[in-house]
Every structure is written in C-alpha cells, then in structure tokens.
Design a protein around this nucleic acid. Structure first.
Length: 572
DNA sequence: CTAGGGTTAG
C-alpha cells in the first residue's frame, strides 16, 4: 500500500484495503462457525482470550491510515469518514507527530490535509458511537480536564458550520444526505461535562449554539442544565432554568423534579423545595416509575436532614408505605450519614437495627459512613473494627474508607499521626483500586493549613509535597475543594494563612471557575473575622464586578464590612 | 443522554 501511495495510485490502495477487509471478515466468520460447532449449546461462551479475539496489531492501524491517505489524495472526506466510522480497527487517534505520518512527509500537501482530517475523523467516529463519546466526556469531567472537552466541541462546531462541514443536525438533514447526523443526546453529554468542570461560561455558549442550530432543548437537556447549576451551587440560575423550561411548555418528569428539589435544598430554599415536592406528588408522580419516585423521595430526605429538619424527615419516612414505597439502601445510608455527621452512635445503632429488620444489607457506603461517624465520636478502634467487619462481609474498602481514616489521623495533627496519614496515602497511591481523589488530598491539605501543633517549616514542606503529588496524578481542585481550602487558610491566624487564601482565590479566577454565593461568603466572613478591612473592601468590589447582587446573609456580611463591625466573640 | 446515598466541610 505504501508503494502505491508513493506512486500516487490511490485507487490501488483502496482496492488493497477492500481486499484486506474482506479477508479479515472471511477469517472472522470462519472462526465464528468453528466456535459454534465446537462449543456445546450448554456451555456458555468462554471469556474472550487471545486466541478467540486477536488484539489489533499495529499493522491494522497503518493500513487504516494508508487508505485514509488514499482518500485524502482524492480529496474524498466522505469516503474516509465512512471507512473510519465503520471500521472495527481500534486505534488511538493518530497524533500530529505520529511516526506513520512522518513517513509520508515526501508529500507535504498530503500530510497537511491529514493533520486537518484526523481530528475530524476521530470526532466523526465518536459521534457515530455516542455512548463512547459520552464515556470519554465523563472521564474528562471527572479529571476536570476542560481543554480536551473544549477541543472536541470546537471540532464539532466546525464540523457543523465550518468551511467543509461533515456533520448535520437532524433538521438540516434533507439537504445534506452525505453528512453524519448528530444525535441530540450529544448536546446533553457536552453540557453535563462542561457544567461538571464548573465552566458555566462554556456551557452557556453551547446552549446558544444549540439554539442557533434550530434545536429546541428537550426535557433531558433542561434537567441536565438544572443538575449542573445544582453542582455549581447556583440556585437562582437553577430556578430560572426551571421557570424557563415550564414557560416553554416542557413538562417535568421525576428526574427533573429531583434536580430542582435538590438544587433548592442545597441553595437554602427548603420551603420552596417542599412546595415543589408537593407539586410532584400531585402531578408527575402518578406516571413516574417507582425507582425514579424513590430517588425523588431520597433527595427530599437528604435535603431535610441537611437542613436539620429531623421531624420532617421522620414524617416523610412514615408516609412512604401509604404510597407503596419502601425505604431502600440509599434511604438508610442517607439517615446514617445524618447521624454520622453528628457522631451520634446511639442513633447509628438504631438505624442499623432497622436495616437488619428490613433485611437490607449494607454496602461500601454504609460502612464508610459508620466508620466516619465512629471516628467523629472518638472511637479510636473504629478503623480496625469496621475493616474487619467489611472483610467478613466480603466488601472491599475503597477511597472513601481510607480517606476517612486519613482525615482522622490528620485531624489529630501531631507528628506521629501525620506520618501515619502520609504512610496510608502512599499505600493508596500504589494501589490503582484505591487511588486517592480530590477529597483525600483536600482533607490532608486543609488539615495541614489548620495545624497549630507543627512548625510552619514542617507544614510547608508537607504541603508542597502534597501539591506535587496531586499534580503528578492529575488531581485538580474543584469548587468544594476551594471552599474548604480557603476557609482552612483563613482560620490560620498566621499571615501565611491570609496569603494562602488569596492565592486560592486568584487561582479560581485564573481557572475561570465561577464563584458561588458560598465562595464569597467564606471569603468575606474570614476577612471580616481577621479584620482585614482593606482586602475585604477590595473583595466586595470584585464581587460586584462579577454582577452578583448579594442577598440574605451575604448582604448582611457586606454591611458589616462597610461599617467595620468587629466580631467580638472569639469563637465565631 | 439527564438519575437519589458515603469520605473533605458546613
């Protein structure tokens, strides 16, 4: 194939590729029938092994690139796209300095065309396998990796409207039969990923793009938007989206109700959340599947407990049987979490008894929750006890389990405990099953900032070490992380504390992570407490420039800063 | 496609 490419005979290359594919298909079907003959009907198919499904060798990728290059010589992108999206050949997307590409450098025009084509072909193959694209975006969002998401999205937009479009939304289809149709769910996947990265600005422009392509956002898109605002702790925006959705006569289902109710509870609007829940019960609940209804109930339960409305929570639980609903494992875990936060061992035991009476077996969430509740209550033997219990039940401890233990060590703050925490962290880093996450590292960092036992040199050394480890592993800060760290820094009375807090603030701005009301509250309350009036004034100004109109407790805080009201109670 | 619970902290 390379010979014909060099001789500029693309059609020969294409012929050879077709033959190659045909021979593969023949081999596959031959092998397939052999398998059928040899295996009895009673024996289930074996695990895929090297002999039954050969792993793609690199030769296949080179062959694919050769035929793509042949089509590039003929400038037939559509044909290349058809091959690329339908081939079973697995290949990492070819990078620009791929060794296979540089072998074509005798034809610079061809190489240049291929460097434009390859990312587009990569996207096209993802668009034709939406669930694969979704998985990829989800992974990027988990890693807070905005750039690759943006890159894919830019390529998508370019594919719809650029100089040589190869994608189409359904509404345009009649005039463009040769383009790949973009499934509507892909918009939802991108929106969800961008919101999880706290990039409301990019999410907003995606929304605008979608409208300008003539797509009316459907229920799932609205739900994703509201969920995203909830993730970003932006209640007002969530509520605005909810109203806009209803204004467009889109009827919410259980999932949509769940999203808005969660946002309202998290945004301190529990009365409105409960009214919305009542509305759900008298409307969408009638046609909602049981598991979906239960998720709404569990969200309400979680919200009530979050706002310390324990009586209301018990009323809700008691009302469930009348509607044919039974509390499930998640309901019980939610209850356990409430008592765990309060370190209430007696109530924890009560819930565990209720669970066994209802024949509900605990899972990893259950055990991690109980473990941290016991630690909060001062039970030093909790890790040993719970880990033993888990082994007996065959439940593997995970990141949350070990993070809880590490947090406990770090909280104690003496040198021996901190060293124990670092040792456990090292063990987690060495084991791919329990790699530390943002929560683990945040716990270590926040406790270091708050530490008053150790020398500041020692703290600084350990802090640098942690930051390096995070960078090495690609673990990035997100909104709750910043909140925790800024607050921890500001509680440290040393001047370092203030400096560090402001560093995190600037880092947030640099990374374009939008501030939630809570962010400003934490910052301003900390500055007020330290009586850093000038810096507090400056922050208030910067808050106004973001267009935020503070209300409630946040505006009270602004008033106190303006009036230089000193906090006299040293406990606050 | 969007989906309820745990580990950071409030």
């Amino acid at each position: 194939m390379e010979y014909y490419l060099r001789r500029n005979h693309p059609d020969k290359v294409i012929q050879l590729y077709d033959k190659f594919i045909a021979s593969i298909e023949k081999k596959k079907s031959a092998r397939g029938s052999e398998d059928r003959e040899s295996s009895s009907d009673l024996i289930p198919p074996a695990m895929p092994s090297a002999t039954t499904s050969p792993s793609p060798h690199s030769g296949e990728a080179s062959t694919l690139l050769a035929v793509i290059a042949a089509h590039a010589i003929k400038d037939d992108f559509e044909a290349a796209m058809n091959i690329y999206t339908s081939t079973s050949i697995r290949t990492k997307s070819f990078s620009q300095n791929d060794e296979r590409l540089t072998r074509l450098k005798y034809n610079p025009k061809l190489v240049q065309r291929l460097t434009v084509w390859i990312p587009r072909l990569h996207l096209a193959s993802l668009v034709s396998r939406p669930q694969m694209l979704h998985k990829l975006l989800k992974r990027y969002a988990n890693e807070q990796a905005v750039q690759p998401i943006e890159k894919l999205y830019q390529c998508l937009k370019d594919g719809l409207t650029g100089r040589a479009p190869f994608l189409t939304t359904k509404s345009q289809k009649p005039n463009t039969p040769n383009r790949l149709v973009l499934p509507a769910m892909i918009w939802t996947s991108f929106l969800s990923a961008l919101m999880k990265c706290q990039r409301r600005d990019l999410a907003a422009s995606l929304w605008d793009d979608m409208i300008s392509f003539g797509i009316r956002p459907g229920l799932s898109m609205w739900t994703t938007l509201i969920d995203g605002f909830d993730n970003n702790r932006a209640v007002d925006e969530a509520l605005a989206a909810w109203k806009m959705m209803r204004g467009q006569n889109v009827h919410p289902d259980g999932l949509a109700y769940r999203a808005i109710i969660s946002a309202l509870f998290n945004g301190n609007k529990s009365a409105l959340a409960m009214r919305t829940f009542d509305e759900f019960q008298s409307t969408a609940m009638k046609t909602s599947p049981t598991d979906c209804t239960l998720s709404v109930y569990n969200t309400v339960l979680h919200g009530l407990l979050l706002t310390n409305q324990i009586d209301e929570a018990n009323n809700l639980l008691q009302s469930m049987p009348q509607t044919g609903l039974k509390p499930d494992l998640i309901s019980y875990n939610t209850l356990l979490a409430y008592h765990s936060r309060r370190g209430d061992l007696k109530e924890l035991a009560n819930v565990i008894n209720d669970m066994s009476a209802a024949n509900i077996i605990g899972d990893i969430f259950t055990f991690s929750t109980i473990l941290s509740g016991m630690l909060k209550a001062g039970r030093e033997d909790a890790p040993k006890l719970i880990l033993k219990l888990m082994r007996k039940q065959g439940i593997e401890p995970n990141v949350a389990t070990y993070s809880a233990i590490i947090n406990h060590h770090m909280k104690r703050g003496d040198e021996i405990s901190v060293r124990a925490a670092f040792l456990m962290l090292q063990q987690m880093e060495a084991d791919p099953q329990i790699h530390p996450n943002d929560v683990t590292y945040t716990s270590v960092l926040a406790n270091l900032y708050r530490n008053t036992w150790l020398s500041s040199e020692q703290v600084e050394e350990w802090r640098k070490d942690i930051v390096q480890r995070m960078e090495r592993r690609g673990v990035k800060f997100n909104l709750p992380t910043y909140h925790i760290l800024i607050k921890a820094c500001l509680t440290n009375t040393e001047s370092e504390g203030l400096k560090n807090a402001l560093w995190y603030y600037h880092d947030m701005r640099k990374r374009k992570i939008p501030m939630a009301n809570t962010t400003w509250y934490i910052l301003l309350a900390g500055l007020l407490h330290r009586e850093e009036w000038n810096i507090a004034d400056e922050m208030v100004n910067q808050m106004y420039t973001t267009g935020l109109q503070p209300s409630g407790s946040l505006s009270e805080l602004v008033g106190k800063i303006k009036k230089r009201t000193r906090i006299l109670d040293p406990e606050v």
